[in-house]
């Protein structure tokens, strides 16, 4: 029988103590890096270009009345259009009728694979060329709605389909056993439950749309149609200062952060109803 000498723990520390030391070292390193950057930074020149309050002030009130308003409007219109179309595509994907499925699958693959910019461009310039005399209802807003919504619909269709399939089969059986038609079952029982499931991924889609709305600039918008990014970049040029970009960045956050907390609130509200 060989006697094995137990290896003494390094420096006589327990596993937990060693982890503490490791973590402490990492924090110390992080602190040093921050300190180094803070000391090395030319705060005066940095704030002179990025935090010029006079430039920021000159953007008010058009920041709110035009830029944020337009960004929200483009986003919500495209979201509503995308949701309505995405829901139909999701149902087509789940249809027992082959051509419906093929169409929906083809649509999703096509629009998911194309850059939003290309789609927007094709809608804005391709459709009026292909159908001379055609005007979008709502004119520019209608065009943006469709241009951004077509892409959004492809993503939402996939999300909603997954949500519908996540509703247990017994729900359909219970509803049909009560004499509900397939359509009634879908709209009264399955889809309300599917939507509770897909709220988080749909919010993701909404937030992506907030940012994609900046693509509208390619359409050669008039001043009154500026959304946040175009609005900011126009000030960037006229004021020769990067401060407008900071203002615009904060404005985007002012839109997206409340959206995230709204979703958390919704999820909490639905928690017991699922």
């Amino acid at each position: 029988m060989t006697t094995t000498t137990a290896r003494p723990p390094r420096a006589g520390m327990t596993r937990r103590q060693r982890a503490k030391v490791t973590r402490g070292t990492q924090y110390a390193f992080l602190g040093l890096v921050v300190l180094f950057l803070a000391l090395k930074t030319d705060w005066k020149s940095f704030s002179d270009s990025f935090f010029r309050l006079d430039v920021a002030a000159s953007m008010w009130p058009r920041l709110l009345t035009e830029a944020i308003r337009n960004t929200l409007l483009y986003t919500l219109l495209a979201f509503a259009f995308g949701l309505a179309l995405g829901l139909r595509l999701a149902m087509m994907k789940l249809s027992s009728i082959g051509p419906y499925r093929w169409f929906a699958n083809g649509y999703v693959e096509l629009f998911r694979g194309l850059p939003s910019l290309v789609v927007l461009f094709m809608v804005a310039y391709g459709i009026p060329n292909a159908f001379p005399g055609f005007k979008f209802p709502g004119d520019f807003f209608g065009m943006v709605t469709v241009g951004l919504g077509l892409t959004a619909a492809a993503y939402m269709a996939e999300t909603i389909r997954a949500g519908i399939q996540a509703v247990p089969k017994g729900q359909m059986e219970a509803a049909r056993s009560l004499g509900m038609s397939p359509g009634r079952t879908m709209f009264s029982i399955i889809i309300p439950q599917a939507f509770r499931i897909v709220i988080p991924p749909l919010t993701n889609e909404l937030i992506l749309l907030v940012k994609d709305s900046s693509l509208v600039y390619v359409l050669g918008v008039s001043v009154a149609q500026y959304e946040l990014t175009k609005f900011g970049s126009s000030f960037l040029v006229s004021k020769a200062s990067p401060t407008p970009l900071i203002v615009v960045a904060l404005a985007y956050l002012a839109i997206t952060l409340p959206l995230s907390s709204l979703v958390r609130a919704l999820e909490k509200r639905f928690a017991k109803a699922r």
Partner: peptide, 21 residues
């Protein structure tokens, strides 16, 4: 079938109540 099913009550092993209502 929907019309006939109205007259037939069905109770499932897993209850299948509508959780959103």
């Amino acid at each position: 079938i929907d019309k006939v099913r109205r007259r037939i009550g069905m109770v499932f092993q897993s209850f299948n109540l509508f959780p959103h209502l």
